[in-house]
Every structure is written in structure tokens, then in C-alpha cells.
């Protein structure tokens, strides 16, 4: 009886040392959790509340009028579709460019791979505004490409500047380093021996990609897609400088609604809608990761 009681006390109370360790752990975790709450969770709920609660003469009231206005406004919907289209095209282009690059960097043993890795990471250190200016000077009207073509006696290019292809080119260029790094990290999970075993079993390059490499980097591809969606939805500088005036992408649209139309509540509504679309991709990613972990247990 006494033994049982005393062991029960030990289990609930724990030792002074283990209590101290638990407290230290809580303190260490509390700072990032507080920051997350303050800088991310609170602004999300605050923004959602500001779009749903309106001031009336009698006080406050619940209203979804800004959401109704957004989804009934052809221009707003055109902006949303443009953003989704640019996101899809950028994601497809990034995968098409970065996947072969990442495969080469992961499996190539030559010295060229090192040089190529340096070049692939270079855009990471170029600020967006400098990149935008450089693109205007090269592929813009009368830019570097036009000058070269003119010197060769060839017609000018149909410039992508101020068309949806302007921000697409800029965003793809800007996102190549991070996407490549994430894919290379994902490919790190595919061991050399796993690839060699597949080749030994008779797999040619395409079969190797389809049956061995792609199934093992599914999570990395999901991360890439999620990050692409998040970064392109939140992009401002490149769509603002290189993109078309109408329709426009969500970033410049929000900024213009806020500072020129001065409709703060509508701007926040646009932000909430963008956030919800990104959250769907985020939830999809988290679900896939959780499913994989569950299957491995």
C-alpha cells in the first residue's frame, strides 16, 4: 500500500531535475510560440474579423458584403484567375527547369556540377527590384535582345514586358535557387545504391525516374509546389513592375485597393481570400506529410 502510494507520488510529481528540464524546455519553446501567435496567428484572425465585422450606426454587425462584392466583381475575379494562372505556369516551369537541374546536381560527379550549383544559386542574391530592372533592360522594348536582333537584321521580339509573361519570367528566375535547393535536398533521400540497384534490375533512365526517383521525392515536390504557390501569391515587386496593368496580380491589386482606392476592408478581404487559397495548398501538404509518417509507423 505504502509502496504503491509512494510510486504514484513519484510519477506525478517527478524529480526536481526533471521538473527543471521540463521548465527549461517550455521556456525555450515559449519564445517562438509567442512570436508565431503575435506575428501570424493574431493578424490572421484579426484580418478575418475585420472583413466580417462592420461598424453600423447602432454598433457592430456581421457582414460578408466585401466577399460578395469580390466574387461578383468581374475585374477582381479576373485578377484572381490571372494570379492562379501565373502560379500554375510558374510551378510547372519551375519543376520543368529545376528538376533536371536538381537531378544533375544530385547525381553528377563532375566538377561542372559545382560550377552549375553556384550559378543556380546566384539569383538568390539578386534583389527583386534589380532583377526587374535587368529584365526590362534585356527583354523589354528596345532592350538588349532587341538590339542584338536589330544588329543581326532580324525583327524585334514580342516583348513579354507588361504582359503576364513578364512576371512569370521574373518569378521563375527568382525562385530557381530555392526550388533547386529543395529538390536537391529531397533527392538526398534517394541513395546512390537504390538507383544502382534499379539500374542493375534493368531500369533505363525513364523507368528509373518513374518508378524509383519520383515516388521517393513526392514530399519534396509537394514542398516545392506549396512554396511556389505561397511565394507567387505573396509576390509584389515583380508583378508590379513587370506585369500588366489590367488584369493585375493579387499583390499589386491589394496594394492599389489599399493606397489608391483607399478601401482598407476590401484590401484585407483580398488578402484573406489569397490566404485561404494558400492555406488549402498548405493543408494539402501537411496532410500528405502526416499520411506518409502514419504509413511508416
Amino acid at each position: 500500500m505504502t509502496d504503491l502510494a509512494s510510486s504514484g507520488t513519484r510519477r506525478t510529481g517527478g524529480t526536481a531535475a526533471s521538473n527543471g528540464r521540463g521548465l527549461t524546455g517550455l521556456l525555450l519553446v515559449s519564445a517562438p510560440v509567442a512570436l508565431l501567435g503575435w506575428l501570424i496567428i493574431y493578424p490572421i484572425f484579426n484580418a478575418i474579423a475585420r472583413t466580417l465585422v462592420v461598424q453600423t450606426e447602432t454598433g457592430t454587425a456581421f457582414s460578408v458584403d466585401t466577399y460578395v462584392r469580390f466574387f461578383s466583381d468581374g475585374y477582381a475575379l479576373a485578377n484572381l484567375w490571372l494570379t492562379l494562372w501565373v502560379t500554375a505556369v510558374c510551378a510547372a516551369l519551375l519543376l520543368a527547369i529545376c528538376l533536371p537541374l536538381a537531378l544533375y546536381l544530385r547525381f553528377a560527379k563532375s566538377r561542372v556540377a559545382g560550377v552549375l550549383q553556384g550559378l543556380a544559386l546566384f539569383p538568390m542574391f539578386v534583389p527583386s527590384v534589380i532583377l526587374a530592372y535587368a529584365l526590362i533592360r534585356t527583354i523589354g522594348p528596345n532592350g538588349g535582345v532587341d538590339l542584338v536582333l536589330n544588329a543581326l537584321g532580324l525583327p524585334k521580339i514580342n516583348s513579354p514586358y507588361l504582359t503576364p509573361w513578364g512576371p512569370i519570367i521574373g518569378l521563375v528566375w527568382d525562385n530557381i535557387p530555392l526550388t533547386t535547393l529543395m529538390l536537391v535536398a529531397g533527392l538526398g533521400a534517394v541513395s546512390d545504391n537504390a538507383v544502382e540497384a534499379a539500374r542493375d534490375a534493368g531500369a533505363r533512365p525513364l523507368a528509373l525516374l518513374r518508378h524509383i526517383i519520383f515516388p521517393q521525392i513526392g514530399n519534396a515536390m509537394l514542398v516545392v509546389l506549396s512554396f511556389t504557390v505561397l511565394s507567387i501569391f505573396s509576390a509584389f515587386t515583380l508583378p508590379y513592375v513587370l506585369g500588366p496593368a489590367s488584369p493585375e496580380m493579387m499583390g499589386p491589386f491589394m496594394q492599389r485597393t489599399f493606397s489608391q482606392v483607399m478601401d482598407t476592408r476590401m484590401a484585407v478581404t483580398q488578402a484573406v481570400i489569397s490566404f485561404l487559397i494558400c492555406a488549402v495548398f498548405g493543408a494539402f501538404y501537411v496532410r500528405s506529410i502526416a499520411k506518409n509518417r502514419e504509413a511508416r509507423r
Binding site: S191, N193, A194, E196, A197, R199, D200, A201, G202, A203, R204
Partner: peptide, 14 residues
């Protein structure tokens, strides 16, 4: 390797 009549077993199982 994919065309050789050999079969390999690796240390790491692979």
C-alpha cells in the same frame, strides 16, 4: 548495368 547479365547485392540492402 541495365544490359549486363549480372545481379548485385549491396551492403546497404538498397
Amino acid at each position: 548495368p541495365e544490359k549486363r547479365p549480372t545481379g548485385m547485392v549491396f551492403q546497404s540492402h538498397a
